[in-house]
Amino acid sequence: MNDPTFGPDDEALSALLDGELDAAEAASLRRRIDREPELAARFAALEAANDRVRGAYAGVAAEPVPERVHALLDESPRAVDSVVAFAARRERRRFASLPTAHLSMAHLSTAIAAGIALAVGIALGLLLAPRSPAPGAAAALAAAGDVAPGDPLFAALETVPSGAARDVGARISAEPRLTFRTRDGGYCRRMDLTRERDAAVVLACRRDGGWRVEAASFARVDAAAAGEFRPATETPSAVEAAIDAAIEGEPLSADAERALLAGGWPGGR
């Protein structure tokens, strides 16, 4: 192929980029790069093009895989499948606006492995950012988030019934979506945070008198289908996976939830 854009050192530079040169070759090429500005510029250009390609597709692996594809692999449902299916059904019934494709099996293992727990401050920071978080951001931010009394999120978690939204400042609206009892006797709530087209879904659990964010997913509200969330990160199902792992039985009924909100949460202050 006669390609005028192809430089004489491109092959070596490209291999250097991939870490595929042996140590001696790599060292000698790096020395040349240090000495020759043109070579350095070419290396930088190749690297930049490569980064753009990698970056452009980075988020795609976090998108939900179509259910029809999963269905091919789900010919022998197991216990875990029915748990997930149950949660999906439940969500669908209560919150018809949420897609359920990402509640499927495939994301479970990776989501749990990621063990994502995010500080609410970080969650809010990401919501406030002009665009959704860079791929990898969620996994990188593995710090657990405590929501202390006094935080507007605390009040929202403590008192707002599922399905009602509350403004928590910074143009962020917080809406608890469901409450459930955990296998170890505690309580957790799923809450959506939205700010214009950005959204985060968090799972917070009542612990030691406060709330702790156990998992978070980020999404972008798709304007083409108002009200729906389109998962936009590598673990869109982190929250669903965490719910499935922790939930005991069904989510609380509205009455049971109301009693909790009115009578105080167990676990004390």
């Binding site: 390609d3 854009t5 192809f6 991939d18 093009a49």
Partner: peptide, 10 residues
Amino acid sequence: LARARASLVS
């Protein structure tokens, strides 16, 4: 790979 990247640079 090198050819692909070179094309992408331009």
